[in-house]
């Protein structure tokens, strides 16, 4: 199947080269770096290495980056699109497992999850993750062990759904939306490493705002998503 790895990057000049090399050396899927109008040399680094890069003229955040990647995947007829962080947290050797999951197990979205077989550690971050899992369980009745994982593979049906609604974000509330639309979601055990350089999208105060947004969205907006006509 034609697979595209979407790598959003904002101010990742120190990480992006390593990430893309990791993808190209461990897999033979196509990839697309989305440069979200970085203020540092991310663009130059990509140009120098001749990476396949799409450069946005205005900085608009992670959501917009993933959305444009999905549009690209749809226009170029990709069967699977995978969101993959450009900061070196995700490891490309697990990408194949996600693709296999979609190809063989007939699911629409595969999540690279840290906690399928492993236990969740106790930390403030994980408390947030547990809270979101509980909200998802309450609204859909299904268990997602690692909802905040940023490594997700979408099949063609999910890509189409994703670009048809511009309010969809690459965040856990979209999973609830997709489940309400009768999509099958499965989790695959992966490992993630700590980011080496640069800053994450989620800063301390921002993460409180993030939690509030996601939980509000899951409980009050995504939970009343209408099913597509004609069932499956």
């Amino acid at each position: 199947m034609k697979t595209l790895i979407i790598i959003p990057a904002y101010n990742e000049e120190l990480n992006i080269e390593k990430t893309v090399k990791d993808v190209t050396s461990n897999t033979n899927y196509d990839y697309l770096v989305i440069n979200d109008c970085s203020k540092d040399n991310t663009k130059e680094v990509c140009k120098k290495n001749n990476f396949n890069m799409l450069s946005l003229p205005i900085n608009y955040g992670l959501t917009s980056g993933i959305q444009v990647g999905m549009k690209y995947a749809y226009q170029n007829n990709y069967d699977i699109a995978i969101q993959f962080d450009g900061d070196g947290q995700h490891q490309a050797k697990y990408l194949k497992a996600l693709v296999d999951e979609i190809e063989n197990n007939n699911c629409d979205i595969a999540i690279g999850s840290r906690f399928v077989t492993e236990k969740k550690p106790h930390s403030l971050r994980m408390f947030g993750s547990i809270l979101i899992s509980m909200c998802i369980k309450a609204t859909t009745g299904k268990t997602i062990k690692d909802p905040t994982s940023g490594m997700r593979a979408y099949n063609k049906k999910a890509i189409k759904e994703f670009i048809s609604n511009s309010s969809l974000t690459p965040e856990p509330d979209t999973l609830v939306y997709m489940m309400k639309k009768n999509m099958k979601i499965k989790e695959v055990q992966v490992e993630m490493s700590q980011r080496e350089f640069g800053e994450s999208y989620l800063k301390p105060l921002k993460s409180i705002e993030y939690m509030f947004n996601i939980i509000f969205s899951i409980l009050f907006i995504r939970s009343i998503t209408k099913k597509n006509k004609g069932g499956k």
């Binding site: 450069s55 946005l56 003229p57 608009y60 690209y72």
Partner: peptide, 16 residues
């Protein structure tokens, strides 16, 4: 904001 985002995407895709 949605419209600007769409324009942003359209320009990027065109340039690519």
């Amino acid at each position: 904001s949605e419209k600007i985002k769409d324009l942003n995407h359209a320009i990027a895709l065109k340039e690519y």
